[in-house]
């Protein structure tokens, strides 16, 4: 038991997160400041101490920003399994992580579901991540599974005026071109 406390204390000291502060608040603060490693440490500590689902969301997003897609997806999946209603940031995160992991079917379907529930989504801890990024990522995944019709629907969320005929080859190329164009600024 003593050994366990020593380990936890060591993690706390190494991580730089204070023992007595709100790890989650501190984690999100670090996240918003772009210090994702510190954010990850704070959230990680919280998951060890309290197994708080919000901490897993933060852990997932911190890992996402650090490029650790497997770890990120693992955290998001855990939250979704436990509570898929109150932690919508885990679902959006899972869309991005799933796509990065080439799990395109899951990512695309999850993205569609998410956008039907939260059409105006903005990730409050990083406002550059919105429903548009989710739609874009889902569009990419739909293309990867050959479903250009659904990809078009996702693009239309970002650019309602865009149109193409996904059933023919030219329409598919139009969709690819539009995705590449959006990728330049999204």
């Amino acid at each position: 038991m003593v050994r366990k406390y020593i380990i936890i204390l060591s993690i706390i000291l190494i991580s730089g997160c204070s023992l007595f502060q709100d790890n989650i608040a501190e984690g999100w603060k670090a996240f918003e400041n772009g210090d994702y490693e510190k954010a990850r440490d704070c959230f990680s500590k919280e998951t060890i101490l309290n197994a708080n689902l919000e901490a897993y969301v933060g852990l997932g997003w911190s890992n996402a920003k650090l490029g650790n897609k497997e770890s990120a997806l693992s955290s998001f999946e855990y939250v979704i399994l436990e509570d898929s209603i109150n932690y919508i940031d885990a679902i959006s995160g899972a869309v991005f992580a799933g796509s990065a992991m080439c799990m395109d079917s899951t990512s695309a379907i999850r993205g569609t579901y998410f956008l039907s529930k939260y059409p105006n989504y903005v990730f409050e801890h990083d406002t550059t991540v919105t429903f548009k990024q989710v739609a874009f990522t889902s569009a990419c995944s739909y293309v990867n599974i050959g479903d250009f019709s659904s990809a078009l629907l996702m693009i239309k969320i970002i650019e309602p005026g865009f149109n193409a005929i996904p059933g023919n080859e030219q329409g598919k190329l139009d969709i690819l071109l539009k995705i590449e164009e959006i990728s330049q600024w999204i």
Partner: peptide, 20 residues
Amino acid sequence: FNIYLAENPVFNGNINVWTA
């Protein structure tokens, strides 16, 4: 061959490459 590229907006450096 026409090449189209798109990057994951969150996971920087994860690139889809499509060739038509």
